[in-house]
Simulated assay, not measured.
Amino acid sequence: MTGELREAIRGVWADRRVTNTADRTNVVDQLTGADYISLAALLVGWGSALLFVRDEPNLALLAMFGAFALDKADGWYARRTGTSSPFGRQVDSFIDIFAYLVPAVLLYHTVLAPNDVASLLVGFLVFAFGGLRLVRHNSEGFGSDGDASYYHGTTVVHTNLVVVTNYFLWALVPGWNGWLAGLVVTAVCPLMVSDYKAYKTDVSHLLAALGAGIAAGLALALEFGYV
């Protein structure tokens, strides 16, 4: 590279680079330990997506539950260390797309969908209502009902678990099929932007963990032919 070309490139970079300190944002510097846990959840969630594409739904579900666990761990770590921030909540919502919505859509598409049109419509509804639900949550935050906090509308976790439940119904219940699964998922998607109060309690977290544990056990049983 000639000296003249090098100087020309430096000149373009200097013209385009944000130099005002007030306008500069170093994303890496804003990341906390909780955010790195969130990024680990993204990695595992992406691994789950690849397993779905490779037609390994049971292994994909196990990876997805690993992403769930990391997603819960980042919030616990942020509260424990006092590092919660608006930036961190944005990161968490971004990861939720890949930890909950993408696996749910791929599970329906690769296993349950009776045809591409059904997959197109169900996937669109999951992404559209799920995305709008995350945008609203970032804008409004948690609701408060006395000493209790609640999510405004059902969460992407609820929708994901509905899709997972339909997968096990398809695998274990004669007559259950992709059309019925699609109707159920379609019916629950608008609840994510409804006025339903999904309370954020220790009991709800325990039930979610219990449901994930049962689902992981069923996935293992299906994978190794026990059921």
Rank of each mutant, 00 (worst) to 15 (best):
M1G: 15
M1A: 12
E4N: 10
E7Q: 07
I9N: 05
A14E: 15
A14R: 14
R17V: 12
R17G: 07
T19V: 08
N20Y: 11
T21Q: 15
D23R: 11
D23I: 03
D23E: 13
V27E: 14
Q30S: 10
Q30K: 15
G33W: 11
Y36H: 14
L42D: 02
A49G: 07
V53R: 09
R54K: 15
R54H: 15
E56H: 14
P57M: 02
L59S: 11
L59K: 08
L59I: 12
L61G: 01
A63W: 04
M64K: 02
L70Q: 06
D71A: 12
K72W: 15
K72H: 15
A73L: 15
W76V: 15
A78M: 07
R79L: 10
S84W: 06
S84Q: 14
S84C: 14
S85I: 04
S93E: 03
F94S: 13
I95G: 01
Y100S: 05
P103D: 04
L107F: 07
L112R: 01
N115I: 11
N115W: 12
D116C: 09
A118N: 09
V122Q: 04
V122A: 09
G123S: 08
F124Y: 13
L125Y: 05
G131E: 04
G131W: 01
L132G: 08
V135I: 13
R136W: 02
E140K: 11
G141K: 07
A148G: 03
A148N: 10
H152N: 07
G153A: 09
T159R: 05
L161K: 06
V162P: 00
N166V: 04
N166H: 02
Y167F: 10
L169P: 01
L169Y: 02
L169S: 00
W170H: 09
W170I: 00
A171K: 11
P174F: 02
G175E: 06
G175N: 06
W176Q: 01
N177W: 01
G178S: 03
G178Q: 02
L180N: 03
L180D: 01
A181R: 00
G182T: 01
L183F: 08
V184M: 00
V185H: 03
T186G: 00
A187E: 02
A187R: 02
V188N: 04
P190K: 04
V193P: 04
S194F: 03
Y196L: 12
K200T: 13
K200M: 09
D202M: 08
V203I: 14
V203P: 05
G211N: 04
A212V: 11
I214G: 06
I214D: 09
A215D: 09
A216M: 08
G217Q: 07
F224A: 04
